[in-house]
Design a binder for these strands. Structure first.
Lengths: 308, 308
DNA sequence: ATGATTTTGGCAAAAAAATTCCATATGTCA
DNA sequence: TGACATATGGAATTTTTTTGCCAAAATCAT
């Protein structure tokens, strides 16, 4: 791409440090580079390895972006990117980037489109789940009740401790939400009922706490019972569910309804996950707003790197 | 792309000369721009028309190049390009170029852009997660390695007992996969490491069993260690991960790579979930095929009703 | 644990790219 | 043809991007 510049610089490549140690010499095509990356990455130091993974996963972003933007996305300093490029024999980031540009220009997407349609059973299944996920996502977009969503985020943001309950399929969500909140420094307790302690733990909840309950049809899990018992004690409850008939609805201060598509009898969860994660972020935002006014910074995780 | 810059400058657009004369107002997508170009090109002055034709014919070069390179290729001065961009309502060449970049990033395909305009912060967050989920799903669709997928399903289908391991955000997947398999009558053991018993449990695995391992960057969980120890004992391992650099890869009999998008630092999981569920169904199919030939029906759940 | 070595972050210098400005060219209309 | 308006080329200026450097941090071997 910017070939003149590249050629002029080529002989200026530093031959000290990692560059010499690894002894790589300027993979000239994207394919070569991939090969080199996948073979020799093991021995790279932490950040450089992080860079390698990012380049591997986001080739388009690398081709289109700037050192700064790529560095930000990869969670490293621009200088680290330059060092990385030089370690692999390039004169600098631009030189490395040219490889990605050429790849992208040359119909980089020319991957072996799997024989869609007539193709394998596996392809049919994957397509099926992708399709139902996409449909559910589109549905959320049109139908989500933002007013309820905001009440939920407000409730959770002001809670002292957030209890999260959900069983079976909903438990996948619960575990991810719990992790995400924890990463943001929002303390929470996922009631997984290991040792059947959920009721006892929840009995310790106070009115300054809050419960996030997740339950889907058929509503035959322990979740509604837990929610009901907490509600009776005056703990505010907000819910994520899939119809207005959910037993969670009557005991909830607010709820949103997310309708999942199913394929071959299995629900996708994608839509609910998207809503749940949005909720987590919204809660964090509100906490920060409040935190800015109130006491000191409540967020140990802080910046963007490696949240999840 | 470089949206901040763009926004800051947007109001500085010169409204004199051709700009005002043509009265164009910043086509926001490549498709719009094309429409404008094809309609209004006739009345452009010579050089600007030349530019229009060049942009029409070489969108990729425009997205990847610099003002200078594009100007040279089009046979005009850089300043002419900037004027052209401004005549169409952009703040400058970079602003115009962003349209081409977005187009190229979106694989040229008409990916419906989620115009997250609706104002509220909540809507923006939800749209963000929906968008990144959709993007990741699209990525899986054309990048998934079906051959590896089939080896994985074969391995799991013939296993006596399936061990499933995954920590942190991968654990959400693990719990759902475990549930789904169980609903289909496929016996499995999700190693959640409650009580730190994972190593001990896994030590009971035999070569007729199989391990499904799930791990994502950064690969700093216990999962790779567990997988490695199982591999050493000769238990077949298949993995779901997000790059060839995953420590799971060297110990796996087969693996598929699924790259998730992230939004605000959180990964969506949708794509991985879709693949995982497809895998579960594929395993069941294979078991049924085998079961039909072999002994009696091994599937207590049977028909489709209320699988999940 | 200690010291040596490697790796990383951040800033400042250098390079490149983008944009503006202005002089000149081209075309238009009386 | 001459006066005016518009368009263009090219250099100067500004902005952005890239790279080099060094001190701080982390890692490793002893």
């Amino acid at each position: 791409m910017n070939s003149r510049r590249t050629i002029e610089r080529a002989d200026a490549v530093a031959d000290a440090g990692v560059g010499a140690a690894l002894g790589y010499s300027r993979p000239g095509s994207y394919e070569e580079l991939r090969a080199v990356l996948s073979s020799g990455t093991a021995r790279l130091p932490k950040k450089l390895r992080q860079v390698a993974i990012h380049l591997w996963q986001h080739p388009t972003a690398v081709a289109l972006g700037t050192v700064t933007s790529v560095a930000r996305e990869a969670g490293v300093q621009p200088s680290t990117l330059v060092r990385f490029a030089q370690a692999f024999g390039y004169s600098g980031f631009s030189d490395l980037q040219d490889v990605f540009k050429v790849h992208l220009a040359g119909g980089g997407r020319s991957r072996e489109r799997w024989e869609s349609g007539s193709g394998s059973e596996a392809a049919r299944l994957v397509d099926g789940f992708i399709g139902s996920s996409a449909t559910a996502l589109a549905g959320v977009r049109d139908r989500l009740d933002l007013a309820q969503f905001e009440i939920m985020s407000e409730t959770l943001a002001t809670a002292d401790l957030i209890y999260i309950i959900g069983a079976k399929r909903a438990f996948s969500l619960v575990s991810y939400v719990s992790l995400a909140l924890a990463n943001l420094g929002v303390r929470n307790l996922a009631l997984d009922n290991v040792g059947s302690t959920a009721f006892e733990l929840l009995r310790c909840a106070s009115t300054s706490d809050a419960v996030l309950a997740v339950s889907f049809t058929p509503y035959n899990s322990i979740t509604p019972e837990l929610a009901a018992s907490a509600a009776q004690r005056g703990v505010p409850i907000v819910s994520l569910t899939d119809s207005a008939f959910s037993p969670l609805v009557p005991v909830s201060k607010a709820y949103v309804e997310v309708i999942e598509e199913s394929f071959s009898g299995f629900k996708s969860l994608s839509a609910t996950l998207a809503v749940a994660m949005a909720l987590v972020l919204r809660v964090e935002q509100r906490r920060n707003e409040a935190g800015a006014r109130g006491r000191d910074a409540p967020n140990p995780a802080g910046s963007s790197e490696g949240r999840t």
